[in-house]
Design a protein around this nucleic acid. Structure first.
Length: 387
DNA sequence: GAATCGTGGGT
DNA sequence: TACCCAAGATT
C-alpha cells in the first residue's frame, strides 16, 4: 500500500484521499446508475424485500419478480397476515426458500412489535434473514444511516483499491476490510455510496475481466498499479459437484394430479441401483410442494430407466397403468447435478395415493408452491398447463 | 470456518 | 460439458 500525507499531516494507507474517492465515485454513479424498480419512489419495505431477493440472486432475475411480490404483499401487515404457503408460492422459482420463510417470520415480528420497520442497523440486524450486509444496506438506503454494506461486489472493489497483488490481498483480513468500508461511507449519501460501490463492482470492476479504462477510481487503484487487477479478489475455488440420477412420477387421476407435500421423505427406493447418494429432497425446498420422487443414486453408465419403472410399479400397486418414460430433465441444486427421469401414468378415478402423497384438484394446483424443478418435470410430462 | 441452501445465465 | 458467478444468512 502507499502511504500518503493528508493536508492534516496524518498518515494513512490509501491511494486517494477519502473525499476525492467519494466525489469521483458518486459523480460516476449519478451518471451511470441503473434504473431499478426498487429505486423508484423507494420505500423501506420495498428496499428490504429487494435486498432479501438479491441475496445470491442476480439483479436480472429479481427484476422480473420484485414487482409482483410487492404488489401481492404491499406492506409488512399484508405479508404478516398471509399464509406461509402463499408467500412461498410468490417466491417459487427464486430459490433459497429459507429467505421467504425468514421474510415472512420477520414481517410477523415487526407487526407483533407494533408495525414499525426498524430505523437503524441494530434493529434490522435483529430480524431473521437479515445479516451484516443486508442490515447495512437497508439502514443506509432506506433510513439514511451512515452504515457500510459489504457484499461480494464491494469487497472486490475495496480489495482491488487497496491491494497491489494477491499476496497483499491475502493479508487484508475481513475485519480490516470492514473497518475500511465503515470509514469510507459517504456521510451525506450513505445509501448512494453503497449502491455506487455495488454498481461499480457489477458493471466495471468485474471478477474476471475488469474494465479499468471505464473506472472512475482507476487512478487510485493499487491492483491496477500492480498490473494484474483480476488477480486480486479473484475467483474462489468451490467444492466440486456430485452427479446423481433420480426419477419423478406424474400421476394423473382424471383432472387431478398427485403431489408430494412438504417434507414427504424419503423418496421411493430402487433396488438394483445400489446405495442412494441421498434419500431424496429432505432438507431442500422446505415448505414447497413437489412430485412423487425416488431417492437419489450415483449417476454414471447406463440410464437406469428399467429400475425406476419397476420401483414406480411397485409403489403404485393395483389400479394404475404401467408408468411410461416421458423424458429427461437436467437441473442443478447447490452441489448436486440432477438427471431426472420423468415418468407418467394414469390411475382409475377412485384410486387413492399411498401416504404421504395426496391428490390435488385443478383449482388448487396453480396455487401450490412448486419448485422450478417440479415445473420442468411437469412440462416434460405434458402437465405444465395445469399449474 | 466450512458446509449448506436454488436458479439462471455466461463462458 | 463443466464450471463460474450472483446485492448472503445460518448453523
Amino acid at each position: 500500500m502507499t502511504v500518503r500525507t493528508t493536508s492534516a499531516g496524518t498518515e494513512r494507507a490509501a491511494a486517494l484521499p477519502d473525499g476525492t474517492l467519494r466525489r469521483d465515485l458518486l459523480t460516476w454513479y449519478d451518471r451511470e446508475r441503473r434504473p431499478l424498480p426498487w429505486r423508484e419512489r423507494p420505500s423501506a419495505y420495498g428496499i428490504w424485500v429487494s435486498e432479501i431477493m438479491l441475496q445470491q440472486t442476480t439483479v436480472a432475475t429479481v427484476m422480473t419478480r420484485w414487482r409482483a411480490f410487492v404488489d401481492r404483499f404491499p406492506d409488512p401487515a399484508a405479508l404478516a397476515a398471509a399464509p406461509l404457503e402463499d408467500v412461498l408460492a410468490a417466491w417459487s422459482g427464486l430459490g433459497y426458500y429459507r429467505r421467504a420463510r425468514a421474510l415472512h417470520e420477520a414481517a410477523r415480528q415487526v407487526m407483533a412489535a407494533g408495525g414499525e420497520l426498524p430505523r437503524d442497523v441494530a434493529g434490522w440486524r435483529a430480524l431473521p434473514g437479515v445479516g451484516p450486509y443486508t442490515a447495512g444496506a437497508v439502514a443506509s438506503m432506506a433510513c439514511g444511516r451512515r452504515a457500510a454494506a459489504v457484499d461480494t461486489n464491494v469487497a472486490r472493489v475495496l480489495r482491488r483499491l487497496h491491494c497491489r497483488d494477491a499476496e497483499a490481498d491475502r493479508g487484508l483480513t475481513a475485519a480490516a476490510l470492514a473497518r475500511l468500508a465503515d470509514r469510507l461511507v459517504d456521510p451525506d449519501r450513505p445509501g448512494d455510496w453503497n449502491q455506487a460501490l455495488m454498481d461499480l463492482g457489477a458493471a466495471v470492476c468485474t471478477p474476471a475481466a475488469p474494465s479499468c479504462d471505464a473506472c472512475p477510481l482507476a487512478g487510485g487503484c493499487q491492483a491496477r498499479r500492480g498490473g494484474d487487477p483480476a488477480a486480486v479478489a479473484g475467483r474462489r475455488a468451490g467444492p466440486g459437484s456430485t452427479a446423481v440420477a433420480l426419477s419423478f412420477l406424474v400421476i394423473r387421476c382424471g383432472r387431478d394430479l398427485v403431489a408430494a407435500p412438504p417434507g414427504s421423505e424419503p423418496g421411493v427406493r430402487c433396488p438394483g441401483l445400489g446405495a442412494p447418494v441421498r434419500d431424496g429432497f429432505a432438507g431442500l425446498y422446505a415448505g414447497l410442494w413437489g412430485l412423487p420422487s425416488t431417492a437419489w443414486y450415483p449417476a454414471g453408465g447406463d440410464v437406469p430407466r428399467a429400475a425406476f419403472a419397476a420401483a414406480w410399479g411397485a409403489a403404485l400397486g393395483e389400479g394404475a397403468e404401467t408408468p411410461q418414460h416421458r423424458g429427461t430433465v437436467r437441473h442443478a441444486i447447490t452441489r448436486y447435478r440432477l438427471r431426472v427421469e420423468v415418468f407418467a401414468t394414469a390411475v382409475r378415478p377412485g384410486w387413492r395415493p399411498p401416504a404421504p402423497w395426496v391428490r390435488c384438484g385443478p383449482a388448487r394446483l396453480p396455487q401450490l408452491p412448486w419448485s422450478s424443478l417440479a415445473r420442468k418435470a411437469l412440462g416434460r410430462a405434458g402437465a405444465a398447463n395445469e399449474i
